[in-house]
Write a protein that binds this DNA or RNA. Structure first.
Length: 113
RNA sequence: AGAGUUGGCCUUGCAAUCGCUGGUGAUACUUAUCACGAGAGGAAAGUCCGGGCUCCUUCGGAAAAAGUGCCAGGUAACACCUGGAGGGUGCGAACCCAUGGAUAGUGCAGCAGAAAAUAUACCGCCUAAGUACUCAAGUAACGGUAAGGUUGAAAUGGUGCGGUAAGAGCGCACCGCAUAAAUGGUAACAUUUAUGGCUAGGAAAACCCCACUUGGAGCAAGACCAAAUAGAGAAGUGCCUGAUUAAUUUCAGAUCGUCGAUUCCGAGCGAACUUCUGGGUAGGUUGCAUGAGAUAGUUGGUGACAACUAUCCUAGAUGAAUGAUUGUACUCGACAGAACCCGGCUUACGGCCAACUCUUUCU
RNA sequence: GCCCCGGUAGCUCAGUUGGAUAGAGCACAAAAUUCCUAAUUUUGGGGUCAGAGGUUCGAAUCCUCUUCGGGGCA
């Protein structure tokens, strides 16, 4: 249930690695890219663009929601590197809607195994 | 009750569980675990001003450039704040003002209008004196005049009386303007008196003048540790000219470079060779939170604020920490997220309290 | 975080310093030309000068604030 620096994508290399031939799932709120890694824990990268969400406080809110959802489902996602991108309407939605949307993504990824 | 003005304060509270980032302590031993305690704002925003801090040769002078602009005070400083003066807005509480100089100089004002800054004379008014026509009455401008009219944003003091041929600061009274003096005030300025008699229009947010201020760049500053690869720094010896000395010993001067990112000058530093030390891009560490600090009290001051005393330590990330869930209470939670740090200004926005003003109704 | 530019017609830009007519090219519409179209010629429409406030008789232009867009510094 822990979420530490190990579980994050920090370097540009790691991001580039995911962007080469990723698998992807989409809906109206998020685009999720993912790829198998060689480790036995998952890693999360966030790309919340300033163009799609202008206010800093709203960007922070999105990041927190995504991280919290990731943390709660960390056991399902072992062995994947995951990158989440936002859409330009995402920040208008309620927290519950976003969490449900994220759950659908996590389930799809865990089925891929 | 409604409408409004000013000032101050707050920015959901409490409990539980699971997480995130620093700190302290312990255990393992350098990265984990456990315990304790801490963790966004009034605007953290815009980056519009002013500082601290750091580097640039933290030196001096001149010009240029930029900024500020009633007076006094506050402050580290300011384009900020406080108090006052003058002007303006509002019935009022109150609020607003880039508010020095147009008599240093240059330039500007389309169209309209006679005339737009050395005033002038289109329509007008007058015919007293003098002149022309005429016997005279009268007519007239090549004479006098600027009261009235027209234009325009703006027309060269205003009103009234006297005066006159008609008029005119031509004379007088009041207002206004200018100058001088006196009084009050630290001052801005105000009041009074005397004198002058239109000369003094607008615009300085056009150039400009006067007074005051300002060196430049910015934490992606800068410092340290450090692969590859190319540069640097320190010490010693020496120089082109002249003088001097036992001596390349000492002194003076010239030339070139540097004086960064407005330019120039001065001062300072440097110039060639040898030896030694090494060197800093990716990355990391640091800068980095004890400060023009906060809270409370006392004193001084109209106030901004200052002084003193006591107590306290209160975010520090770096793909960037503050969240989620549950319960509960209410007024049902707006604007919004620190990134070197402060003081302001501006903009966004939810509420509470106090004082005051106006209107209406009732007593 | 710090620094610096820009916003004018559907599009690309002048005009801003130095204040008094908002202009050019392309595009659009109409007419002429042609058997028809293109090209050409002529004519026309289209502008809160990013927004608000101030200075001024008068502001796209000067001053202040806001807003949107873009760029640089590793």
């Amino acid at each position: 249930m822990q979420f530490r620096k190990n579980n994050r994508l920090l370097l540009k290399k790691d991001f580039d690695c995911v962007f080469e031939n990723p698998k992807r799932t989409k809906d109206s709120n998020f685009t999720v890219l993912y790829k198998k890694n060689s480790k036995n824990y998952p890693r999360l990268g966030l790309i919340i663009s300033k163009k799609n969400c202008k206010l800093a406080s709203k960007r922070n809110r999105l990041k927190r929601i995504i991280r919290e959802s990731f943390r709660n489902n960390i056991s399902k996602l072992k062995g994947h590197d995951i990158v989440v991108l936002n859409k330009h309407t995402t920040y208008n939605n309620d927290t519950l809607v976003l969490i449900k949307s994220l759950m659908r993504h996590w389930i799809r990824i865990s089925k891929e195994k």
